[in-house]
Simulated assay, not measured.
Amino acid sequence: MTCSIEINSRIIGLLNPVYIIAELSANHNQNFDQAVQLIKAAKEAGADAIKLQTYTPDTITIDCGNKYFRIGKGSIWESRNLYELYMEAYTPWEWQPKLKEIANDLGMDLFSTPFDKTAVDFLEKMGVPAYKIASFELVDIPLIKYVAKTGKPMIISTGMASLAEIDEAVTAAREAGCKELALLKCTSDYPADPAEMNLRTILHMTEAFGLPVGLSDHTLGITAAIAAVSLGASIVEKHFTLSRSISGPDSAFSLEPHEFKAMVEAIRTVEKALGTVHYGVSEREARSRVFRRSLFVVKDMKAGEPFTEENVRSIRPGYGLHTRDLDEVVGREAGYDIERGTPLTWDLVVRRNIVL
């Protein structure tokens, strides 16, 4: 097991910059120019990678109108036929090599989620640097093994999966030759309810599998993604659209460019703030150290006058004796006249007489 993976020389894992993926999904609305605009907008918003989905209606389901192929209540796609939905949502395969070239020219990675072996073969010819396994395909063990045999890094989304199911998928990928594997915490609801995100699972998954863990986020807004980073997420994937006003199967729970950019900026700030385990004075804190408390004479004193808690106090700033010395000072005498506001030092204090 390894706590990092590498995609196009980019190390992804704890203590490395979060890998931020813009999921295009169906937000191109079957328009190539719109897909290109999405990629360019994602670059401007700070995405590290573009993710596509490689399927056709016939590679993901069958054309059947009975009740088993209709989406149930409570979904944004309620009552829709699966085949018809996927016909509307799929990304034409002939686009994908062109989109990869555009993304690469902009300095971004582009990879995809395959949904069958033909998609894997196609993506291998495209030369994608990695593969994503969708949550719904986590239980497709033959597909996972087929992808693993490519030797490319794999990112497996875990929506709906039990711990045992995740373990089965991870084991299958490993046994089939995958050496670089990451997991994504996911709630497979669209949009997802923040109350059902259970982001603390990220910590447990990291410990349980010893793998980089990220978040595939379907909530509205950016809060969950930012919180996930604070819990150790090393990958964040969000659906990306030019505008939610552009109707489409996924637009309702996708981020617009300005929102995606705000998320990226917040994540970059959070990862800097997380830092490493550190105690003591930081470089920029050093100038503030002087404002700590110390012992000061707070009333004018004559030589021979005893120090008391009325004329010596622990106050800011920090030029005097340490506050722990207060009990040792009280009761002794001043060796000199001392002006109010003088930091107390041992040379101002008469040593105690030692009685033999």
Rank of each mutant, 00 (worst) to 15 (best):
I144W: 05
E196M: 10
I102A: 06
A119H: 09
I141R: 08
A173R: 02
I354V: 14
S245M: 06
R316A: 04
I222T: 15
L326A: 06
S188I: 00
E339T: 15
R313W: 08
L231W: 07
A89D: 10
M301T: 06
G127L: 11
G331L: 11
S314D: 13
T276S: 14
T201L: 06
K185W: 12
Y146K: 15
S247M: 03
P97Q: 05
E259C: 07
R352N: 12
T54G: 08
H218E: 05
T276M: 11
D300T: 06
T223M: 09
L110W: 00
I267D: 11
A172H: 02
S254P: 04
A208P: 00
E259N: 02
N16M: 00
K43V: 01
D121H: 02
E180V: 05
E339G: 01
Y55T: 08
R287A: 14
I133M: 12
T223F: 08
E78C: 12
A233K: 10
E175M: 11
G280W: 02
I226F: 10
L99S: 03
V349R: 01
L344I: 01
E137V: 01
A192P: 02
E265C: 02
L321T: 09
C64E: 12
E271I: 13
P343F: 04
T150R: 04
G221N: 11
D63F: 11
A161H: 07
E309S: 14
Y55E: 08
P114T: 13
K67A: 15
W346T: 13
R316G: 03
G341Q: 14
D217G: 07
P306E: 13
D105A: 13
A208F: 11
L82M: 15
N198I: 00
T201R: 00
F253N: 06
D325M: 11
M160K: 01
K67I: 13
D217K: 03
Q37R: 15
A266Y: 08
E259M: 02
L184Q: 15
G232D: 08
I21E: 02
W346E: 10
T2R: 12
E328W: 04
R174G: 00
I5W: 04
L242H: 03
T91Q: 14
V213H: 11
Q53N: 07
M87R: 09
D300W: 08
G214L: 04
G13R: 07
A224E: 15
S282D: 05
I202N: 04
E285Q: 07
E207S: 15
T118W: 03
A169F: 05
H239D: 12
I102D: 02
